[in-house]
């Protein structure tokens, strides 16, 4: 088991390095000039050139890439923002808890609603419950996050006055962003759960369980649900990744100073160092999440745990 974890951790190195080189290269070729952003549109060519030299923007591609890789992976320093001149590492650390809280809360909401919705739809396949659940799931998958966010704000903040439209310091500030961010994931969870449950429910061992006279509740929750959860956990990992991506929109709409908002500010200002750092940071974080998801398989399904054990035994 530990060898597997170690192997996965080692695999993260080329993944993160690849992401770093890719994002650096993309931003290198993206049109836009940070010097122009800093100095404004009325700067003279001489002023712009001087600023480019100061920032090292006129160095060749490989020189800049090498310098960046060294700074990030040897000095553990993402550098300073072109615009604010502040340490990006410090900014990321300050903002990460808000993004993490938003994503975790969204994930919890998505699972708490999506899984029961999917189970219910599967158990009552073809019924009104099923139809309603799948319509909700369809809406969740179809409606863009920013639109859901706007609708929620109009309803709960403007019309009902229950919740604040923007902000981030109180718990109540996170309710609307979490629901908006969770809606798509909720739908995916529900659809995956329904599909998984339907497959399991029609298995022989479920029929056997019923034939033995077990109550329907025990059949569903003790025998069917654990086996149907495995693909749901897989989807949960990717859903979490999607939610991390959606924070770019959610944090902008609700004015939450997280990593998503930081990244979009960096994109708008052509603050390459900020964008690179955010992408790399999220890539590392997502890799860790996917590793945890893989490890969760073994907790849910003893067969997978047994696989690891068998491999170790063979060696």
């Amino acid at each position: 088991m530990w060898r597997y974890v170690l192997k996965r951790l080692l695999w993260m190195i080329p993944v993160v390095l690849g992401v770093t080189i890719l994002i650096f290269t993309i931003l290198y070729f993206v049109p836009g000039d940070p010097a122009q952003t800093i100095l404004g549109s009325d700067a003279t060519p001489e002023e712009l050139q001087a600023k480019r030299e100061e920032l090292g923007l006129d160095d060749p591609y490989f020189v800049r890439l090498g310098r960046y890789l060294k700074d990030v992976y040897i000095n553990f320093d993402f550098g300073r923002s072109y615009i604010s001149n502040q340490s990006i590492t410090q900014e990321l650390m300050a903002r990460f808890p808000r993004t993490l809280a938003l994503c975790l809360a969204s994930m919890i909401v998505a699972m708490l609603i999506g899984i029961p919705l999917g189970v219910n739809a599967a158990v009552h396949q073809g019924s009104a419950w099923d139809t309603i659940s799948m319509v909700i799931a369809l809406l969740g998958v179809s409606m863009p996050t920013f639109w859901v966010a706007q609708l929620l704000v109009m309803l709960f903040a403007l019309k009902l006055g229950w919740l604040p439209p923007v902000g981030y310091q109180n718990f109540s500030n996170y309710v609307l962003p979490c629901i908006a961010n969770a809606f798509n994931g909720l739908a995916m969870q529900a659809r995956q759960m329904r599909s998984g449950m339907l497959e399991v429910i029609h298995s022989d061992y479920i029929t056997t369980a019923r034939a033995k006279g077990l109550s329907e509740r025990k059949v569903i929750f003790r025998h069917a649900l654990p086996n149907a959860l495995i693909p749901v956990v897989t989807v949960a990992g990717t859903t979490f990744g999607k939610m991390l991506g959606s924070t770019v929109v959610i944090e902008s709409v609700f004015s939450i100073p997280g990593i998503g908002g930081y990244m979009i500010n960096g994109v708008n200002a052509r603050d390459y160092t900020v964008v690179q750092a955010c992408v790399i940071f999220l890539a590392i974080f997502f890799s860790i999440i996917m590793l945890l998801v893989d490890l969760m398989y073994s907790a849910i399904d003893p067969r997978i745990k047994a696989q690891y054990t068998r491999k170790r035994g063979r060696r």
Binding site: V109, I113, P116, L160, G161, W162, N170, S172, V175
Partner: peptide
């Protein structure tokens, strides 16, 4: 009941600050 609880908690209990 679970669905109702989750929805009520998520939407209403935190509101009205």
């Amino acid at each position: 009941i679970l669905l109702i609880l989750v929805m009520v908690l998520a939407l209403a209990a935190c509101g009205g600050n």
